[in-house]
């Protein structure tokens, strides 16, 4: 099998995801609703009990990385769900019988999901000013890159499960069951310091933790907040007191993505 032919296949599978994403305005809007609700309703509501701001930093600003992760989370899962959908409506078979390697389909799908999900993240990124985060090119680029990684890993995870689960309803139910705990434990809602032991362990196991933290670090690096506040709200992720560096967090996210991509490819090789 020629590599150039497979790369053409990767590109066209990716393109299809893009066409479907841009055609589906409704999906773009509905995927924005949850993060926006989260940011403005929950963020604003909760700030009344913390008297509007935590040490001078608005609660919405704190929650902003969580909203970005949330937007990516739902869009990536939706992309992966489309594989189950494709199977139900037969289109998956058109791809599976083509004279291409299976990895090309899986990689194309994951790259497509990653791109659409991080584009969705960019829409939330546009709200930075509203929540008190200054616009800056370096911030946008850093966060976009980090979201891309997160989106890729999430889509790979979704595609991996979609290889096994052939019913859309079951797939959606499984994801609902997984997404909420992942999100709650990820540090999107509260700083991951001074937690009781059991909760600290759970948050450290949650893979999403290592995607939210780098985004928060990037956001806080662009805020002009006093060091004490930053320390309080952006404590980072620690293992036994050792603060996990950003590069390692990103390596963790990437490694998981690559591993799940590998499993997904392996599973689709067996499928007929």
């Amino acid at each position: 099998m020629k590599l150039s032919h497979n790369l053409r296949a990767v590109r066209v599978v990716w393109q299809r995801e893009m066409i479907r994403f841009t055609n589906d305005r409704l999906r773009i809007v509905t995927s924005l609703i949850q993060p926006v609700l989260f940011l403005f309703v929950l963020g604003t509501g909760l700030s009344t009990i913390t008297t509007g701001a935590v040490h001078g930093v608005n609660l919405r600003t704190f929650m902003y990385p969580g909203a970005l992760a949330m937007a990516v989370l739902f869009t990536a899962m939706f992309s992966a769900a489309s594989i189950v959908w494709d199977r139900e409506f037969g289109f998956l078979r058109e791809m599976l019988v083509a004279p291409i390697s299976r990895w090309a389909i899986v990689v194309g799908k994951c790259l497509g999901g990653a791109t659409t999900a991080s584009l969705q993240g960019v829409l939330i990124l546009a709200l930075a000013g509203v929540v008190g985060v200054p616009y800056s090119l370096s911030l946008v680029l850093t966060v976009f890159g980090e979201l891309l990684l997160l989106a890729f890993t999430l889509t790979a995870f979704g595609v991996m499960t979609a290889a096994r689960i052939t019913q859309l309803q079951a797939f959606m139910a499984l994801n609902q069951m997984l997404l909420m705990p992942l999100f709650f434990l990820s540090g999107a809602l509260f700083p991951l310091a001074n937690l009781p032991g059991w909760l600290r362990v759970l948050t450290r196991i949650d893979p999403l933790t290592y995607a939210v933290d780098p985004v928060r670090r990037a956001v806080f690096a662009h805020l002009h907040a006093p060091a004490a506040v930053v320390h309080r709200l952006n404590p980072g992720v620690t293992w036994n007191g050792w603060r996990v560096p950003t590069w390692l967090e990103l390596v963790i996210v990437t490694a998981m993505g690559v591993a799940m991509l590998g499993i997904a490819i392996w599973e689709f090789r067996k499928a007929d």
Binding site: I19, V97, P99
Partner: peptide, 27 residues
Amino acid sequence: GLVFQDPTLDGYLTAEQNLRMHAELYG
């Protein structure tokens, strides 16, 4: 060339887009 008993088109795409996709998949 294969035409299955059950349809395998992508309803979200146009006829042209379906064909173009096929052309790429088959090199």
